[in-house]
Nucleic acid binder design. Sequence first.
DNA 1: AACAGTCGTTCCGGTGAGAGGAACAGTTCG
DNA 2: CGAACTGTTCCTCTCACCGGAACGACTGTT
Lengths: 255, 255
Amino acid sequence: MKSKDNASETLAKGLKILDLFGVSDAGYTLNQIAGRVGINKTSVYRYVNTYCELGYLQRDERTRLYKLGVRSLALGHAMLENSEIVRLVKPLVDEAHERHNVHVDVGIVSGDAIYLIYRRESKYTTAFRSFSYASDLYYLATGKAAMAYMEPEELRQLVERLELHPKTDKTITDKQELLEELRRVTELGYSYNNEESVPGLIAIGAPLYSLRTNKVIGGVSFDSATDTHTMKEFERLYSTYLVELAKKISAVVSL
Amino acid sequence: MKSKDNASETLAKGLKILDLFGVSDAGYTLNQIAGRVGINKTSVYRYVNTYCELGYLQRDERTRLYKLGVRSLALGHAMLENSEIVRLVKPLVDEAHERHNVHVDVGIVSGDAIYLIYRRESKYTTAFRSFSYASDLYYLATGKAAMAYMEPEELRQLVERLELHPKTDKTITDKQELLEELRRVTELGYSYNNEESVPGLIAIGAPLYSLRTNKVIGGVSFDSATDTHTMKEFERLYSTYLVELAKKISAVVSL
DNA sequence: AACAGTCGTTCCGGTGAGAGGAACAGTTCG
DNA sequence: CGAACTGTTCCTCTCACCGGAACGACTGTT
């Protein structure tokens, strides 16, 4: 184990387990958990036991698998309700969602990842419920919008340590190509996701600013499916609303 | 420290900190955290550092206080989205909320506590946003409804280890009185919360069953304010809808 | 300028909680 | 019946955690 100072390795390992339950509703067996997080079974056993005793995890009575406990759900719910940023973003996204009947995602950048903190689905996108709560930036509309508006030096360093793994056959895997695309984003004011993360899923994204610090904090996207809209259609119909929404959100979020 | 076997004390302590951030949107200082959770400052420092490095917590740039990080929000959001029970409950509660324009709470019992896993507010109750995600059962409409329909032996044991602390001057603090009230609940089919948790806040609650095991799993409540409805009015207007909603939820939730 | 009161941070020594390999028992599968 | 799972316990070793104390950096008070 690489030992960073001033941090609890035990806690960090324990959190990796909780993390696992954020990406899937399916239950896990003890060995599966141990395998996924890369910790030996005995330790995982102790951690999982701790979670269960406290109510964060519980065992499904039928399948005997470990799954999320009520306490995690309640805690998650409470965190969202109490979070200032979610409380500010929610009504604006809801309004846009209801008015234009479109799928909306809001992602916030932290470290080298973008985190999905709010989503409103449309009937066209429910088929694509691939729900990873944390993603790399380079294959998402929200992420590319955020990258495009980063400070040049920040972006340079990010791209340098980036590894471009293809999610689909349309994922951009060349750094030069990515940088050129990002330049086009700044000209246009919004980004594309042209089936780069999931086949059949397209999106346009716009950056979210903090007007106080003038720095990018994330992105917002409208999503649709290729059998519903072509990219050109989708762009023509919604891009102005998207940019408008992004500005509204940026205005109320004074991080 | 009392040492329970097969559990990680370090992880348990670390989770107490995360828990703290579920009950309030206010930031905390390191010493405040240490005080609240009852752990010495140095350990808390290590835990908090771990959380920050991983993005679960972050420091507010202005106030320098520790607050929830984006990762926690995204994880919470993901857990709720992925949770089967939330996904089942949500549409039913939303429908009732929109049709009757009333505040709805859904609580699930785990251990000796009831956890709020979904809420839709009305304009009458927003003033009361006291948001503790886990509560004792005896002063809530959801909790009392759940208690009333527990198996006799289970209830007896629960009441035995109960300590009835008054939350308001109307909170029931006598075990005999509580048991009598619960008996009346079973006759009526729903419970009251007559300003027993927060002054000015009233509610009626109905139990949620698992039809498979025939056991209580929680409760659902409609809430209002004393300056909007008297208890009699509120009961007359909404009790049938509440019981109806509780049955619907119980039907879809086959835990 | 000296003060008291915060804040987060570091240092350090003693110890016990956690690590983790191995073997366990209980089950489902074919 | 064995094979492949499951969760669980036992064991020893050691290192990561504990926690009191002292630190420097700020802030506001006198």
